[in-house]
Design a protein around this nucleic acid. Structure first.
Lengths: 211, 211, 211, 211
DNA sequence: AATGAATGAGAATTCATTCAT
DNA sequence: GATGAATGAATTCTCATTCAT
């Protein structure tokens, strides 16, 4: 197995043709990843599926890991957008309602392409410290903290930072583990309600009246 | 790279010497896994570290995956024992106390060799449907369900099955994600308390008075 | 081009079969080097010619460079033996006679497989600091110094060390450059005599009477 | 890797801009060669360092070898000029004085950019029969022959052709081997004197009185 | 004249696995 | 039971070169 791997994209494509090549490569990576899994996703195979020469692939991605990194990066951004959008929508509603909206959105996002999600998560674990990941987690933390701060009146735990951390880690942990172990539950409304319930009971003083 | 292979141990070692060989191989696998990661953990390397010929390794493990599977299997068993023991200890205490004991024990178990844990989790994700894993999850589910049934008086949710599933998935999800993303929190008492708090509030009617 | 290159043999073959494999690989390396030159001498090609799998090649040589290094090493040893043997033979004769014997022997040695010699020299230059080379040069220096010391009566230059260095560098330089630029002269008796003459006139006081 | 190719420059740049491009490419080649060695000196890298597109490089040099060839060519010319100039200066002095001047100049020339020199020599060896090289050697031979002819009175060997060949091969061999093996000696006055001494003793009848 | 995107043959190297001894 | 030599498909990645723009 050759050389250690840079994960930064090698060069920014400027011409439209190049841009198309890059997109084709990324799309092919997803396809292959989903169809054959990470181990079988050789760079040659990706290039072939992308209808691009292996040389072109390496023109834009200095290593196989860079391909993964870019995919994870984009995935993260989209995830964060989902979070940010729904959190913003919940700005004026109760913590419970906001939690429900966010959790529902996150579960929905994971239902889109669960197999791809799975592989990306495995690779996140494998790649370990990935800058994109750190950034995303920090941003998420910050976002939820801000949200909780603006709902302070309703909030039970004294320490907002800790509350945010627990909430973020919990929801993320449950989501991922559900994705990995029982993905069919990702669409189970009752399950979503229960998770929402759990988080809400942790975050707000008054017991929610539902159930 | 030759085709994937069976994951069942090839033969049960009967002689003491053979038993020692098997243990040496498994120990070496752990060592190599922790030191070099999965990618670098070649069977040849494992055999070398175990001080055993590659031929001997294949005498007892029909494939690299079998090595992993055995390790995961044992890991699971130990985990389940921790759960079973602590759950049993909590049989007579409140849900809250039992939850605290269990969560504390699980976190403690993950602190023992976090790097090995990490690798095993990654591999669980990668190997996907692993019988040992299914069995373990089912057993855990069953165990918690029984526990909750025997504490029905205290239990808030109507549906015990659902409550158990939420509790199991949550704790497991949080534990794993904590291990992967911020392993240093595995020993943070405040964090453990908060998680306990969250799960308890979900499971029992009366709000716990602490914090 | 993959990983930087260790040049030490990977393992010493102990079984006879393995020994044969190693020899076959080295022989094939020579063949391919001579027939196709260094650039075309891929490890796959060498293995093929050796009638050995590429895996076996890498079992004994951790890199392409290691193959070269071993060949150069052996070449050096043989060269040094030629030197040592002829120098020893000349122990009782005059410097001139000894010089003639040595130079003749060295030229003869370079006539044996000039193409292989060429390639090895190129590679010595390319590999730069190669331990085997350093050792060989040092040993040669020492040998010639000892020889000159034992012929001190006849020796003109005051500084034996310098004299040895000049003699060694000259003969070696001339030999190599002759090999590279006009290999046909390697067998030219007149040319050999002239080189001998030059070195002798430098080393001894009395002008030799020949020519 | 595509087939080997012609080594003649593809076209003579006529415009000033084109001339500048060619010079930039050659300068970049030197830089890259010295910094990273031949193996790493890819045409793409050279073009990048030259601040020129790879297409432009191939506009002027039909192959990587052509780049090398041009560099070697220029190097040779400069070397020959050094020789011609110093030989001419020595026209009126003794063989010894002329030899000293020439050898000193040649050594000095090799001290200028030894790393580049090294690489060029390696490549000379690799490229084998290079027209520029043949021409240069022939010219050098001719030059020294003429010089010796014009100092016939002082000359010892009967055969001028042979004497010239020995002298040229010796000095060149020693120079190159010194460059390759102990470049620090390129500036050692004592060493230069000794080489001069050796060559002079070979060429002239009367023993020089120095040292 | 210049650009730079695209090419793809081919190189080095790894590693799970087999099987003769 | 144990050994370890041998295997070879497969993988990642490079780089000289072309050619449409």
């Amino acid at each position: 197995m050759p050389r250690a791997a840079a994960t930064k994209p090698r060069k920014e494509p400027t011409q439209a043709r190049a841009q198309a090549t890059v997109e084709a490569i990324l799309a092919a990576t997803k396809t292959v990843l989903v169809k054959d899994g990470y181990e079988a996703a050789s760079t040659n195979r990706v290039a072939e599926v992308a209808g691009v020469s292996i040389g072109s692939l390496y023109q834009y991605f200095p290593s196989k890991a860079a391909l993964l990194a870019e995919l994870i990066q984009r995935h993260m951004s989209r995830m964060f957008e989902v979070l940010a959008t729904t959190a913003q929508q919940g700005e004026t509603s109760s913590i419970e309602e906001a939690a429900r909206t966010v959790i529902r959105a996150v579960f929905a996002a994971h239902r889109v392409n669960p197999k791809l999600h799975r592989v990306l998560i495995e690779q996140m674990a494998r790649l370990g410290t990935l800058e994109a990941l750190e950034t995303f987690e920090a941003q998420t933390q910050e976002l939820i903290e801000q949200f909780l701060l603006s709902h302070r009146a309703e909030l039970r735990p004294k320490n907002v930072k800790v509350a945010a951390r627990v909430a973020v880690l919990s929801v993320r942990g449950v989501t991922l583990w559900t994705l990995l172990r029982s993905p069919e539950q990702l669409g189970d409304e009752e399950f979503i309600d229960e998770i929402t319930d759990m988080v809400t009971r942790y975050l707000v003083e008054a017991r929610p009246r539902r159930r």
